[in-house]
Nucleic acid binder design. Sequence first.
RNA 1: GGUCUCGUGGCCGAGUGGCUAGGCUGAGCUCUGCAAAAGCUCCUACAGCAGUUCGAAUCUGCUCGAGACCUCCA
Length: 489
Amino acid sequence: MQNQELKIYNTLTKKNEKFEPLHAPFVGMYVCGPTVYSNAHLGNCRTFVSFDIVFRYLLHCGYKVRYVRNITDAGHLENDADVGEDKIGKKAKLEQLEPMEIVQRYTVDFHNVLQLFNTLPPSIEPTATGHIIEQIEMTKTIIKNGYGYELDGTVYFDVEKFSKEYPYTQLSGRNLEELLNNTRDLGGQNEKKGRLDFALWIKAKPEHIMHWPSPWGEGFPGWHIECSAMSSKYLGSEFDIHGGGMDLIPTHHTNEIAQNIACHHKAPARYWIHTNMLTVNGQKMSKSLGNSFLPHELFTGNHSLLERGYSPMTVRFFMLQAHYRSTLDFSNEALQAAEKGFVRLMNAMKLIGDLKTSNVSTFNIQQLTSNMYAALNDDFNTPIALAHLFDAVRIINSVNDGKETITQEDKNILQKLMNDFVFDIFGLKEENTQNSNKIDGLMELIFDIRNQAKANKDFRTSDGIRDSLKSIGFEIKDGKEGTSYTMNN
RNA sequence: GGUCUCGUGGCCGAGUGGCUAGGCUGAGCUCUGCAAAAGCUCCUACAGCAGUUCGAAUCUGCUCGAGACCUCCA
């Protein structure tokens, strides 16, 4: 990290803090993963791309990172009022599928999508259903320590008791009294002792598909216990970084911290990193608002909000142009701008190796290097780093035009620097399949030539073009409205 | 309703007291057979009002606007 300190904005303290791992060079990082009951949408992807940058940069800095990201394949109720059916089970019955069939389908989809975005796989990707025993054990300990109580097969966390001893709302910054007074009346849930109490274990009703035996009867784990159980298991009761989307702060992460303290007498993570939301026309992209797109729709352009498709790397570049703690607003114009910028960056990357060298450099490579690291060391400020990357692009192009010069030594440094940042840290890569709309233009051109041949009654040429195209997988059709084509895969 | 955050030029988006953000777009120039690419130059900013200060996009207050959370959500 170029002898500079890495600073991370810590949601817990609301400050930029110097990053000091508990057991350097090892770093433990836990990120809340997806609930696999439907396809991951673009907003979900932003979070995982953001943490991919964190992961990659820590690796680049020489840390040995264990990155744990869970798959939520059980638990998570529909809502507080309906202590009944969990989401996985509900969707399964709807579609007449086995719950694990749903889980499998969307887990595979999630992995495919993240691979398209070129994110590195986490070190461990544990599932909630694979850690029922750990969750039960943790619940037992919380009860034993006096912070949990059972009522008719359901175990609740005693928030009011906990909050008398620990700062329950530290992460969210909420005022506890106000929370107690303003929590909506959710009805039908009067058996809890306190309004803020949340479930650690939930009694299964007869219609539930997914349930497991426990000391409190058949049931399933509550909404927050899985992350506490799995982070403790793989990273220890205290580890370095915990992350997730900002929307997890007030409930999920707040309760996770409470569970860990109630069980281990320690807060789980030292640094809490939260990513902001992706918005569409200023509104959060979410499934419930119906303004989300699936990555697949984005890549193909097959969505009412999209003028055309954009490649995964264009989208990744687009995400890197904003800081992870800012909202990022989606628009066709912004995507198109990102596409051009990305192409410009990649074109410069291709030029570096062939640059002619001279006796002197007309620019300061040390300054450039230090600028880039300074940006990332300042809470992973990718847009600033990107700005400096474009300083380098200008230099590369100028040297290529003979307007500036570079020494062999500087060229080597620059090449490594650019490779490190563009490929290793930013995780961008060359794409040669961003051509589907270019093929359209190409085909238009070919059709013009062919139509001219046809007009000249040169059918040998026109048929030859048609046959040649067919042999490489393009079937062309002469219709009344002109010529069209289909592409075979 | 409560809590919090934000409001930057045509678009996206950095920047938090004085010093160029950057990308895309538009105009002009250089280069070029033409075009493209590339380079250079330029245009449109800090929601509004008031205050603090030698000096504010940056701090304070108010007004207007937008969003998030409070309920599963990345």
